[in-house]
């Protein structure tokens, strides 16, 4: 199971993040101060650490300095929004930097990218009779190869990793296309239709009115 260390001193934010990561099946552990976080990181094995910059004892940057020998991917959480802070965080070796306030799914998407980079995600996914191998970029249904375009492939993998979660078109755009693609949510619709058709997901890849799409978990 993927273990995530949540270093955040605001109790409600920490609880929220724990609930968010639980949705995609990660196990979150809350820690409210920097020194304890350093201890926990040295003592136990984690897959990702979410590190708040403003902590009551030592700040997030200092925590990062003290654990730099560990090969642990870190995502900074901060309310500060200036460029120098971001550069500072990344220079210290953080994998990513997310500015408060953020949406749950945005955080999950960032965590997923980091896990994938660190090769901590399984490259094989299954959905009923459909099997996906993200390493070789292949999809098979009942053992027969299905040909998806790269974007269709990424889209389907994103749905698989966020099964049973309703995803907005904007979120899909930034997760799959990787940049703000304003006013072009039609692009998403067309790709979703293609994925539905090619994989026969008419009943399970459903449209949620006023929200987006959801891939429903197989019983």
């Amino acid at each position: 199971m993927t273990r995530i260390l949540i270093v955040e001193d605001d109790e409600n934010i920490a609880k929220t993040i724990k609930a968010a990561v639980a949705v995609v099946g990660y196990e979150g552990y809350i820690c409210g101060n920097g020194l304890e976080a350093v201890e926990l990181i040295r003592r136990e094995a984690w897959d990702v650490a979410l590190l708040d910059v403003n902590l009551p004892d030592i700040d997030g940057f200092e925590v990062m300095r003290r654990i730099s020998s560990r090969d642990l991917p870190v995502i900074f959480l901060t309310a500060r929004q200036n460029v120098l802070d971001k550069v500072n965080g990344l220079r210290l070796g953080a994998e990513d930097y997310i500015v408060k306030p953020f949406e749950a799914l945005e955080l999950l998407a960032r965590i997923e990218v980091v896990l994938r980079r660190a090769n901590k995600l399984s490259s094989r996914l299954a959905y009923g009779e459909i099997e996906v191998d993200t390493a070789s970029h292949t999809v098979t249904k009942n053992g027969k190869k299905v040909s998806l375009t790269p974007k269709e492939f990424d889209l389907f993998v994103f749905f698989l990793r966020n099964a049973d979660v309703a995803v907005t078109r904007e979120r899909l755009l930034s997760a799959v296309w990787g940049y703000e693609f304003e006013g072009e949510s039609r692009t998403v619709d067309i790709h979703v239709q293609q994925v539905r058709k090619k994989l026969g997901l008419y009943d399970s890849l459903v449209t949620i009115p006023k929200l987006g799409y959801r891939l429903e978990k197989k019983e």
């Binding site: 605001d10 408060k100 306030p101 049973d164």
Partner: peptide
């Protein structure tokens, strides 16, 4: 700080089946 909790939790309630 409060907005982070609100936004994140509201999003969770919205997207889960």
């Amino acid at each position: 700080t409060p907005l982070t909790s609100i936004l994140c939790v509201a999003d969770l309630l919205r997207i889960r089946r």
